[in-house]
Amino acid sequence: MLSHRIAIGLFVVVVIGATVGCERTKAPNLAANMNTASSVRELLQAGAAEGGGASAASLSEPTGWATLTGRFQMLGTPPRREPLTIDKDTAVCAPGGKQVLEKTVIVGADGGIQNVLIYLDTDTPADDPKWEHDSYLAKKSDEVIFDQKDCVFLSHVATMRSNQTLRILNSDPILHNTNIQAGRGAIAFNGSVPSNGQTTYQPGGQTDRPFPISCSVHPWMSAYMITRDSPYFAVTDENGGFEIANVPAGVELEFRVWQEKAGFLQKVNLNGAATPWKQGRFSVSLANDERREMNVTIDASVFN
């Protein structure tokens, strides 16, 4: 009887030990539910044969053109800009030990937030003069310049249309390379650009979100970029202001707003009223020749 108890006791110890062993090998992930998964598989299989290509939602036709303009302002104390560690080619990149500050959040004297990106998220018909004003059609094959000087990308948040060509310049007397870590939809690129030389990049498609650009020779160099099919995008200037002219009027359009540190801006105050922007999105429908003013204030805590 006693030996029986000991045996049971031992068995319990072994089971506990074994269970503990099992627990340790479990990864910190949630196991799928096999029944749900097989129902999801049925759902995914069912419509798969019908062919891809989501049909574009039918849009009503624009009635004219309008302007979207405004300003982004920070309320409260902006985060401090830290100096970059510059340990290579210092004669060019930080002459005389000059301090160069990072550009994650740049706020002007009266709170204007620089480098906020505003872009149209609605897919609009391509090359359609009803949707694209002559002023854009005329410039659609223009090259976009992306330059670097004193080991700083001169456009910190760059924008281009996905069919345009980016001409990458190097105004420094040293070699750079431009490593474009393109997001989904565009092609990645990493080319060297000799001193006072140039190279070109064609993204080949539009991206949903901004992606980083860096220089491997000088890893502190950093910029962001977005490529879009439509021409309706802007980046705020040093006063936090932006303007997108000749936007299609009479139709509902959805825009997205992004800032490097905060990501898609969600908690904003628009023309005096607290307005949630779901994943940085807002919708507008502008009247012909309207000039829509957007005064956006954002609490500094969003950027910390």
Partner: peptide
């Protein structure tokens, strides 16, 4: 959220 993680896990097993 746990729900979102489960959705992703289930979708991946389905696929």
């Amino acid at each position: 959220s746990p729900q979102r993680r489960a959705d992703i896990a289930n979708t991946l097993v389905a696929l």
